[in-house]
């Protein structure tokens, strides 16, 4: 159920470079939160910037029955995220959520490949934690994390702590192989096709992941970003172009942000 809460910041710290982790108190509305869902955050009560900003839920602290806090991972890219990075524990933020449709997870499926590009790791980490919590054997999950440099490789230790094998790459070779994350993913999909690929990252990466999945006939879900004004289906600003010409648009905040990759024109 969607609620607006005045959440209190519990922590707000830099993880690496311009990426921050923020913990926010949350209401019982987040009992039902699933990976891939997001929140709309008012970054400044003074309306500078005017619109709320969307962020994926990157983990839930406490257990699903009694959620204590949600964690956001964010990269400072402009006004709103810049303003967030300066906030201190104890300050309040208006939070609207949980929003959207998350990843569809079928526990009967055998193997799961997760792919994250840069800050796209945020929902992927929640996905991994959630999969473990519903009893999926984490040795059947693999994660592929790509970034521009070492600073962008986030949460590797979190995945490993869950018992998930992580493969990393960077554009500049500062950690892991110097290549795109889709290279090792393509090899792995070819060798051991999983039952599902789940991905979040830049558009180009998602297009490539969707291509790999199509090539090897593997199901694939992607979490995408669009401009959003409301996050709740009221403005129709978040239209998403579909792969089939002439179809009406879907809306990222209602029908997504997670979509079956086959549906989208990526």
């Amino acid at each position: 159920m969607i609620k607006q809460d005045n959440a209190t910041i519990i922590w707000n710290r830099s993880l690496a470079g311009t990426v921050y982790s923020m913990g926010l108190t949350c209401s019982s509305a987040y009992q039902s939160a699933v990976p891939g869902q997001f929140v709309m955050v008012q970054t400044n009560k003074d309306l500078q910037p005017l619109l709320r900003r969307p962020f994926s839920i990157s983990s839930i602290v406490g257990n699903q029955q009694l959620p204590k806090a949600i964690e956001l991972l964010y990269k400072v890219v402009g006004k709103g995220t810049g303003r967030l990075s300066g906030l201190k524990p104890g300050q309040q933020l208006s939070l609207l959520g949980p929003l959207g449709k998350g990843f569809a997870i079928d526990p009967r499926r055998q193997t799961h490949y997760l792919a994250a590009g840069g800050i796209g790791v945020a929902p992927i980490r929640f996905l991994a934690q959630y999969m473990k919590s519903i009893g999926i054997d984490t040795s059947c999950i693999r994660v592929f994390i790509g970034g521009q440099s070492q600073d962008d490789l986030l949460c590797q230790a979190d995945f490993e702590a869950l018992g998930i094998r992580a493969t990393i790459t960077t554009d500049d070779g500062s950690a892991g192989d110097q290549c795109l994350i889709t290279d090792p993913l393509a090899q792995a999909v070819q060798k051991h096709p999983p039952d599902m690929v789940y991905a979040c990252g830049p558009r180009g990466m998602l297009a490539c992941v969707a291509g790999i999945a199509r090539q090897y006939n593997v199901a694939c879900q992607v979490s995408i970003e669009t401009m959003m004004a409301c996050g709740i289906g009221a403005c129709l600003g978040c239209a998403v172009q579909l792969s089939q010409e002439g179809q009406s648009y879907l809306h990222a905040c209602l029908d997504g942000p997670v979509f079956d990759a086959k549906l989208l024109a990526l």
Binding site: M227, C235, L236, G237, A239, Q241
Partner: peptide, 9 residues
């Protein structure tokens, strides 16, 4: 409706 992007701040 129109093609995206449809909104800008």
């Amino acid at each position: 409706g129109n093609a995206p992007p449809r909104i800008v701040e």
